[in-house]
Design a protein around this nucleic acid. Structure first.
Lengths: 228, 228
DNA sequence: GTAAGTCTTTATAAAATCTTTATATCGCTG
DNA sequence: CAGCGATATAAAGATTTTATAAAGACTTAC
């Protein structure tokens, strides 16, 4: 690990402290910035492996920072936000954020999200065959297996699953999913999503009532995870 | 070099001799055939690392040999041709030849071309005869058997089946199949596909109403499977 | 020129999927 | 704990896609 480290952009000193201590205790190098300007400067200077960005900054909107960042920065960006601002979270995810955390958060969850984000970033060039304990998706053959059994998916079900697989660990918003699978004219048809998510779960989950692969993020979207 | 060797297909004995001596003196194993039929048989039997093919054969056109070869053989094919037939060379290159030599040639140039062709060969080997419980397809002989019974297929039926066999397990989209079998101008003629798929099933499936080999993937295409 | 075989086109029935509606469930807030 | 918004699931209907037969057009061999 040549480790350019993790950059935290947050104005609250308590949060910065908590993040620094937690991350450093797990062998991450940590950089901190307490403003939008400072954050962008440090990101440009150090090219960190991951950025944790608070949406509520004093000098500039966090959305603006995210936008500027995404003009050149391709590694994961993790959003911090207060409970109330669900709308902000959706907007940030649609603007290229990889994941989000609601304040206050448990440090265990923080570390899990950071691990997942860093793991996916390393994956880089996608492999054609992807394995998630028991679920095997072959993106070039367009086939899906569950415990070596072939599973038959309709065109729509498959393109939904393929999206999830290609963005494992990330939260995908309703908007994004609808736009990618059905097209830009369908971003309000959330019911479509619910219907097809239910069908997918019925086909790939061990217990559709307690999904392990496709996790609901209420008010925001869905997330595909591998438990390993 | 574990060397399955180089196969020479040429009817002129002087040329064969010259090639044999030159190549063997550089540690290549050499196989020879003096006719199209013999050449195809040896290619299928020995899977050579490279084929040197004369276009002017007595029994069959060299172009036909090349075409047949290319239905399953992915390694380099080097064309030999007399000075005059420039048109032939272009056609051969279009049909999948890797390089050509004009007779008479200098042995130094021959060796250089052979070296280059072998160096550039990347694709993995493929078998000429494929077996799917009961269904046997010989891609070099262009024959199909069902439980040892010969099955007669039309040209179109065969090229469709050959495509399936060469991509076993993959979902092949309508577009892809139409483009490969009929050409780029036919990618909208899905009805062609349905008609010929039905005919193929009638000929190769145990119960055409419940196909085992050619599986429909509605809205997407078809998939060829072996149940083993 | 005819006959046999093949490919293309048309028509219709059957199957599968997508869309919509209805109802049940969950988690949260006041 | 009632009520609200968001989510989950089932099932009816509408639509699209597929299967199959069969007629017409074209090619090829004799």
């Amino acid at each position: 690990m040549n480790s350019a480290g993790i950059l935290i952009i947050d104005d609250e000193i308590q949060i910065r402290r908590l993040l620094e201590i937690t991350l450093e205790s797990h062998n991450h190098r940590v950089l901190s910035a307490d403003s939008a300007r400072e954050g962008l400067r440090m990101a440009a200077g150090h090219s960190p492996d991951l950025v944790i960005l608070d949406l509520g900054l004093p000098d500039e909107s966090g959305h603006l920072v995210l936008q500027r960042l995404r003009e050149w920065y391709t590694k994961p960006v993790l959003i911090l936000s207060v409970q109330s601002s669900e709308e902000d979270i959706v907007k940030a995810l649609d603007n290229g954020a990889n994941d989000y955390l609601v304040k206050p958060f448990r440090t265990g969850e923080l570390l899990a999200r950071v691990r997942s984000a860093l793991r996916n970033a390393v994956a880089g060039p996608r492999k054609a065959v992807v394995n998630f304990n028991g679920l095997q998706v072959d993106l070039s053959a367009r086939t899906v297996r569950k415990d070596h059994e072939m599973i038959r998916l309709t065109a729509t079900e498959y393109s939904l699953l393929a999206l999830f697989v290609r963005h494992e660990g990330m939260v995908l918003t309703h908007q994004y999913l609808l736009r990618e699978v059905w097209g830009p004219g369908y971003i309000n048809q959330s019911q479509y999503l619910r219907v097809f998510i239910a069908q997918l779960r019925k086909k790939i989950e061990n217990d559709p009532n307690r999904p392990e692969y496709i996790i609901t993020e209420p008010g925001v979207g869905y997330r595909f995870t591998s438990t390993e």
